[in-house]
Design a protein around this nucleic acid. Sequence first.
DNA 1: CAACTACCTGACCGCGGAGTCAACAAGTTA
DNA 2: TAACTTGTTGACTCCGCGGTCAGGTAGTTG
Lengths: 216, 216
Amino acid sequence: MNDIKKSVVKRRKSADIRKGNLQLILTVAEQRFAEFGYNGTTISSIADQANLPKSNILYYFKTKEVLYKEVLSQILKIWLVDMEEMTAEQHPKEALRHYILLKIRQSKEHSNASRIFASELLHGAPFLREKLQTDLKIQFISTCQVIREWIAKQWMNPISPEHLLFMIWSSTQAYADYGLQSSILMGKAELDDNDFETGAELITQVVLRGCGIKQL
Amino acid sequence: MNDIKKSVVKRRKSADIRKGNLQLILTVAEQRFAEFGYNGTTISSIADQANLPKSNILYYFKTKEVLYKEVLSQILKIWLVDMEEMTAEQHPKEALRHYILLKIRQSKEHSNASRIFASELLHGAPFLREKLQTDLKIQFISTCQVIREWIAKQWMNPISPEHLLFMIWSSTQAYADYGLQSSILMGKAELDDNDFETGAELITQVVLRGCGIKQL
DNA sequence: CAACTACCTGACCGCGGAGTCAACAAGTTA
DNA sequence: TAACTTGTTGACTCCGCGGTCAGGTAGTTG
């Protein structure tokens, strides 16, 4: 099998090897951390799943903590990007609908990342605290400001931007965090595309109506 | 110190000793599990915090898993009780407002329990799956039915009861799960009573308006 | 008080975890 | 091809964890 690999890829360059292995390890690690948490995940288990010896993982990431932080750092970026798109010029009707859609999509397509992020927060964000206090907070404040301007323009009812954002975050995030629970309750093995769409649509409707934003 | 204790309590009965220690251990364990998760919590750390030798913990709970399950079992009960109160006879205006208020209160007053529950779900509910499939599912279905009747009576818009419940759960639950994150973003050490009230009020308003329930 | 049961605990054990290391293989460069 | 860098790996160490156990002490019962 190794021979086949070699004959196909034939003399991989060092840089490629590095890139490939880093990616592989990060991907597998993300899965494991999402499922079992930081403490519940062993380097050996990552190694097994990636079909690499344990030592090789430690060659690329000096410690488990370094590996975990690397996984985490990719996640916050994703989180922030979506929020940036909301601006005061847009009408909240479109802006919020769009944001909710993106967030739900995140929950579906990057559920592992979402769950790691949630788990991190749940346990007091031991590895993420600083980033929250800087990057996320800055974005948060600026988005709250956007909402305040919408309110000033009377495009929506005067409600707390902070709590509104918490509500949107948590209800969209839930489709990643509690997807399993939901599917159990709905009597299916997994949430399907339709469930995510229905969820997005409901959250959008409730939020828009709830904020007194005129539809259409 | 021990002498003082003895002279004050003077000859505690066996039954009392048992009861007291069990309670102490469960309380401390709940704290630790909430903060560090199942795998991140060591029996020694529980012992230290409870000022008991490790062996004593193992005397009352044969294994760590038994202790954890005991903590968990108390939590689901709380979760279910609140939901039972909603009936088709009530008007959703009061019923939902009341339920949301209770849920937020849960998040405030039993945040440890809430967080353990959330963490359990996040990681696929390894210890809770069965209970979800039975107890919670039964209650869930029946509450969905209640909502359907409200819709039939045209007391609210026709929306998916399942997804509505998910939305209410997640947005109230968030005040326990992400309380720390929220407080960081709002620039305070901890969420205060006022934050919980504002949150409850906002969620209530958004949900009621969002469902097309007339406020009067 | 004697016999019994419940409670308590320090010393110990075995396992599996993170991380090290030395020796080697594979790619790179001049 | 020789010297060098980068990647690879099994064997190893060290430690802290969950759990056991034996020998105690404190409460209970007749």
